[in-house]
Design a binder for these strands. Structure first.
Length: 279
DNA sequence: CACCACCCCTGGACGC
DNA sequence: TGCGTCCAGGGGTGGT
């Protein structure tokens, strides 16, 4: 569920807390969400946190010595800060806890929680190894990709544009919600083969995507089920959804019922009237 | 290489 | 009320 706008909100809410904070202790409650070395040192134990970065739907907590922890929230993952608690949590879905001491001496903890465990935590020695192992497999970030670059990438596949835009190796950051919202806003049929989309339409696609994502970020992201930002606060952008979760309901543009189908194995909601091929 | 089906997992919705 | 069933979904893997 957390897609680019939600992950960006997690980073933005946690960054001011984390930067300069010292990691006093790491507690692992569930080892199988961890990939790579799971020592306290690898998980930034004893280190000062330099910053927090994001690429697509993934983020990384970067230590001062260059080690880093990469996090992926999957569908139901969250990374939330709260005042340091006493004792152990009874929540079976809290998998990793970092206890930190901020620059103002305030002691707090960051908790990685993920009931469905589609997410995960990876440790790396330095940004290069993170890049080599994970981020180089991702396409350019959806917020900054250039129209020409997306056009070049779409030209290389005859899959439906919906499937292509969901493919993180093509462009990183969109999930099912924002692809459907994007295609509706562009009046683009989700089924159109990606390599038949004209260059002018790709330009519209990129501009619309950037506006959509920026608005969603400004609204705190979409909280459809249980997404919350780094402070535990839900977003409001689900109220602005035009199609996602609205199958059968009237199109906000033409009033006709929105269609639901399955594309690339994902529920896809769109307006058969407003969204055409050859946008 | 391109593409697809399948699987992982659990909470919530729904039907009886 | 309580139980069974189904579905949501990102991404890794293995098959065509």
């Amino acid at each position: 569920m957390p897609e680019l706008p939600e992950v960006e909100n997690v980073c933005r809410t946690l960054r001011p807390l984390l930067e300069g904070a010292r990691c006093q202790r790491v507690t692992i409650h569930r080892r199988d969400v961890l990939h790579g070395s799971a020592t306290s040192q690898a998980l930034l134990g004893g280190q000062h946190i330099h910053t927090m970065r994001r690429h697509g739907k993934q983020m990384a907590m970067i230590g001062e010595d260059g080690r880093l922890v990469c996090l992926h929230l999957g569908m139901t993952g969250s990374l939330v800060a709260r005042p340091a608690g006493r004792g152990r949590s009874t929540d079976p879905h809290e998998h990793v806890r970092w206890q930190l001491c901020g620059r103002d001496e305030f002691v707090f903890e960051i908790v990685f929680r993920d009931p469905r465990r589609f997410g995960g935590v990876w440790t790396f020695d330095c940004p290069d190894t993170l890049h080599a192992a994970r981020w180089s497999n991702l396409g350019p970030d959806a917020l900054t990709i250039k129209p020409m670059e997306l056009h070049r990438r779409l030209r290389g596949t005859q899959r439906a544009v919906k499937a292509a835009m969901l493919d993180q190796t093509l462009v990183a950051g969109l999930g099912n919600i924002y692809v459907d919202e994007l295609l509706f806003r562009c009046r683009q049929a989700p089924t159109q083969p990606a390599n038949t989309i004209p260059q002018a339409s790709t330009r519209t696609l990129v501009n619309t995507m950037r506006r959509l994502l920026m608005r969603a970020i400004a609204s705190g992201g979409s909280s459809v089920r249980d997404y919350v930002n780094g402070q535990g606060v839900p977003g409001a952008f689900q109220r602005s959804h035009a199609v996602y979760g609205r199958g059968g309901q009237p199109c906000r543009r033409c009033g006709r019922g929105l269609a639901t189908t399955v594309l690339a194995g994902r529920t896809t909601v769109f307006c058969e009237t407003c969204q055409s091929q050859d946008g």
